[in-house]
């Protein structure tokens, strides 16, 4: 997988970056909150794709880390009493520790069984959040008033999100492009061969899982910080499914795939909800159509069109 952008792709990144930086200048509150949702979802999907696209394993339980990230932030602020700025840094680390524990157990198994075990752990965590009234407030959720004034309006929070998400995505890019990144991809390509060239497969996968949990947790914390609340459904199965859909829609074998997937997901959701209350139904059909028409995801579709265009141009030039 080519991860670092070059040539034409670099310009796409620069353009998207500039667009996001200047969005609040010409957009209203609705677009800004749309932007925040998109960036957070993109980060979470990106983090999940470290597992799905890079190591070739499937996690059905990433919402656990998203939910724990969200609850950590709110609990740290409201019950422990530490400031938001510290809480947003600590929350992802809590998720990373949780990821190390869950990953250590799940990675005893492979493929399908691994996926089921992640689902089981996620449901376990969902139940704990849902039932532990004294700590989490159960299905009433948990709120905090103590978000600093400076980021309690949409525009500053938008820039905070943009800053953290950009740094995270660049970090993930570097990690995937390193010797470590290639090693976990080699496990995906052929686990047996990876083992017999000397890759410590379980350790490498565990590190990938921990990194993935960390960034998923950060996304969850950012979401809770924006909403000033956390609800059990952040850790529910629907959330895990939503992240997987973003990855599959965008294309799991492309670095920017989850970002594209998250963008399309948020667009569809935003425009479908006002039109019909049966939006999940329409949404489902649309996803089926997209997946059938573009089996490698939207990114693969766009790239192949783009390459075709280039090939045609070259052909014309050559004749």
């Amino acid at each position: 997988m080519r991860v670092l952008p070059s040539g034409g792709r670099m310009w796409v990144y620069v353009f998207v970056g500039l667009f996001l930086v200047f969005l609040p200048v010409f957009a209203g509150d609705a677009e800004i909150s749309f932007g925040i949702d998109f960036m957070i979802l993109a980060l979470a999907a990106m983090a999940l794709n470290i597992i799905v696209g890079q190591t070739g394993l499937t996690s059905f339980g990433h919402a656990a880390f998203y939910g724990v990230g969200a609850y950590s932030l709110i609990l740290l602020i409201s019950k422990v009493g530490i400031p938001f700025w510290l809480a947003i840094i600590i929350s992802p680390f809590i998720c990373a520790v949780l990821g190390a524990i869950i990953g250590r157990i799940c990675l005893q198994l492979v493929s399908f069984y691994f996926a089921l075990l992640t689902l089981a752990f996620a449901e376990l965590i969902y139940i704990i959040i849902h039932r532990w009234y004294s700590l989490t407030g159960g299905d009433r959720g948990l709120a905090t008033e103590r978000i600093p004034d400076i980021i309690s309006t949409p525009v500053p929070y938008y820039y905070l999100t943009l800053f953290l998400v950009t740094i995270s995505i660049i970090t993930i890019g570097f990690i995937l492009n390193s010797a470590f990144g290639q090693s976990i991809q080699s496990v995906r390509e052929n686990r047996l061969r990876a083992e017999f060239v000397g890759v410590n497969v379980k350790l490498n996968l565990l590190i990938a899982f921990v990194i993935s949990s960390f960034f998923t947790g950060l996304a969850g914390a950012l979401y809770a910080g924006n909403a000033h609340t956390a609800f059990p459904n952040y850790a529910g199965f629907m959330m895990s499914g939503q992240l997987l859909i973003c990855v599959l829609l965008g294309g799991m074998f492309y670095f920017e795939g989850p970002i594209v997937g998250a963008f399309v997901y948020v667009i569809l959701q935003t425009y479908l909800i006002p039109i019909t209350e049966y939006w999940p139904f329409v949404f489902g059909i649309l996803i089926v159509v997209i997946v059938l028409l573009m089996p490698g995801g939207i990114t693969s579709f766009i790239r192949s069109k783009f390459l075709l265009f280039h090939a045609k141009k070259e052909k014309i030039l050559n004749t």
């Binding site: 492009n177 390193s178 470590f180 290639q182 090693s183 080699s186 060239v197 890759v199």
Partner: peptide
């Protein structure tokens, strides 16, 4: 290259582009 990386015990090196 993947084999060399593993053989040299560099599979846990982050941040340096592998290219």
């Amino acid at each position: 290259q993947s084999s060399v990386i593993a053989g040299k015990g560099k599979t846990i090196s982050f941040f340096v582009p592998v290219k």
